[in-house]
Amino acid sequence: MGEVIVITSGKGGVGKTTTTANIGTGFSLEGKSTVLVDADIGLRNLDVVMGLENRIVYDLVDVVDGVCRLRQALIKDKRYSNLYLLPAAQTKDKNAVTPQQMQELTSELAKEFDYVIVDCPAGIEQGFKNAIAGANKAIVVTTPEVSAVRDADRIIGLLEANGLRNPQLVINRLRVDMVKRGDMMNIDDMIDILAIELLGVVPDDEHIIVSTNRGEPAVTNNDSIAGQAYRNIVKRILGEDVPFMNLESDQGFMSKLAKMFGFGKKK
């Protein structure tokens, strides 16, 4: 029986879909059979982020309505082994599916795949309830901004109220230069406020835009620092003890020198 992981955030635009695509592809690179489920009905995007938009025939709502079999709606990503996408419907709305149906769907998928990753829509209404219905683990994505952290806190409360205990946090789009000048909350600030376990920190990285332009998740790009962060996150979910990245790599010459001689700031 595979694990069903929901990627959620409350606020829109913090990187849920990007995180879903990268973690899912990362699982596939680690040899795990994985299916990505786009639960954002009416505003589907996981298909374009994955570069699979031209291959959609059936969607999630078709499966639920019995228009097609589950197998028929799954799109195989030919670039990676054992990676599939179940796209959302674009023309229906969130009420086209019920939490009960989502639960049945994800448990069906969990019989065949090691990991079922559900991309949750923004908000706390029906779409959110659908997305979390079948999950047995939740990952909360936030960025270091007051609005995103506030919404993350709300989502954490709602997840726990719905029996998804101990969600884990991904801090996305961290800008090390701004953290250094004290103009962006750092990792400790956010953990202090949200009081949940940190799963990973994804630095702000232009590669994410470029890779989304191309429809190739950054996790496959060895030059991308965000890709590296996602590879680490995947390993941590798989139970490996991966230390958090040293994000101070763009530091000045003097502090590098200091570090060489062992005077570096501890962190």
Binding site: E145, V146, R150, D153, G157, D183, D189, I193
Partner: peptide, 21 residues
């Protein structure tokens, strides 16, 4: 005294979350 915008953000967040929670 600290006038880092991140400290302001943190303080504001802490207060707003107390009310939210």
């Amino acid at each position: 005294k600290s006038d880092n915008s991140k400290d302001i953000a943190k303080e504001r967040l802490k207060l707003v979350l107390i009310h939210d929670r």
